[in-house]
């Protein structure tokens, strides 16, 4: 099951890389890609994912598509924020490491949350505790309380990510 999903994903990536648009379809490339993806799927399939049944929930894909505009919006806000702090002559920064807590449990959900925190305004995830705590480096510390920091940093992603990955 894990191996099958990995083989299909690898074959889609191969087609994206080698599809000959505007020419005739080259069958040799497609068959070679099939062999290569089956081989690497059987070698690396064991360590691929923890819960393969989550790939069949159709709703997750719609939530993932709905997550893209949210991420792009916060990413642009983050870049304007960084540009302001860098170009200001006095460097208005007040850095520190704070601690936030999250409800997500699965490994892929924690990874997605940490990556989103890194791309959003003023924050970067430093270390992830498996009990549900994330240490976050904040470029302008507004509060050092755990609850308030969670309210500011994590809440804007957690609801959608919970529906995608849990």
């Amino acid at each position: 099951m894990k191996k099958g999903i990995l083989i299909i994903l690898l074959y889609i990536a191969w087609i994206f890389l080698t599809w000959p648009f505007g020419k005739e379809i080259d069958w040799q490339i497609l068959i070679a890609g099939l062999f290569i993806s089956i081989l690497s799927g059987f070698i690396f399939g064991e360590g691929f994912t923890e819960s393969p049944h989550k790939f069949f929930g159709i709703k997750r894909y719609f939530w993932a598509i709905a997550y893209i505009p949210v991420l792009i919006f916060w990413c642009i806000v983050a870049n304007l924020d960084v540009a302001y702090r860098v170009l200001h002559p006095n460097l208005p920064i007040r850095p520190g490491i704070v601690k936030v807590k999250t409800k997500l449990k699965s490994k892929s959900g924690l990874t997605a949350l940490a990556n989103s925190i890194t791309l959003t305004p003023g924050t970067m995830s430093v270390e992830v505790d498996p009990e549900g705590y994330i240490y976050v480096h904040w470029i302008y510390v507004k509060t050092d309380d755990i609850e308030k920091a969670t309210e500011i940093i994590v809440k804007r992603f957690e609801k959608i990510l919970e529906r995608i990955f849990e």
């Binding site: 990413c75 460097l91 920064i93 890194t118 003023g122 970067m124």
Partner: peptide, 24 residues
């Protein structure tokens, strides 16, 4: 902007933040 942050900011963590976000 990201590379200006890489030069101006004072320590590793701030540099990493500014440069990663802007360059991405």
């Amino acid at each position: 902007f990201g590379c200006i942050g890489l030069v101006r900011l004072p320590d590793v963590y701030n540099r990493l933040q500014a440069s990663t976000k802007c360059v991405t």
